[in-house]
Amino acid sequence: MNAPTRLVEVRTKILKQNDVLARELRERFRQDGVTVVSLVSSPGAGKTALLEDLLLRLRENYRVAALVGDLATDNDARRLARAEVPTKQITTGTVCHLEADMVADALQGWNTDELDFLFIENVGNLVCPATWDLGEALRLVLFSVTEGEDKPLKYPTIFNTADVAVITKMDLATAVEFDAAEAKRSLQSVRPGIETFDVSAKTGEGMAELVERLRSLRGLGDASNQQEAI
């Protein structure tokens, strides 16, 4: 016979540690006056190409830097270093996403108060990064025209946690018969009201508008409309 059991009430967030650290990071970034933007997408959606172009455009007027997460290799950091801004690779080993402590560790030795924009490129993955707050002010979710219009419906959680959606590789839209209206319907279905930018890092299409959106974050403090995790 099983012994009778009872419940002792505990109300604690499972990711308490990450949440506390992310909150501390967000406060530090606010005090340092650095606008932190993270990028999430599936592998190959064009995060690094987009980031390279954003860094080149923003560095004219701002002090910019980037952290890039990958399971292995520092190819992305080396690629971004061509934009001649500080970059650092976070190699996660077998971990499929970035966590707040990885960001905090990577920032050791960096004076974030000497930056205007810090970008954090998450590991290419449309599932796991959704769960971890990194202390960013704005989360961009990218998907490319080659991935299909229903990507948001397949990965609703990550799209729901994002503040802004960026449809990439627009230069290929015609070739792959991308249905932009259908893609927007999918996006609005999983994340009503989400702001969307159609861009091509290759041709520059839509990049000025996206840059303008990021510039609008400066001086406004935390412009995120991302909801506090419950």
Partner: peptide, 18 residues
């Protein structure tokens, strides 16, 4: 987009022998 429930990730109780 005003989500008030559905993001929960929370430990609510420990079950122990009475």
């Amino acid at each position: 987009n005003h989500v008030v429930g559905g993001r929960e990730m929370e430990i609510t109780a420990l079950e122990i022998t009475a």
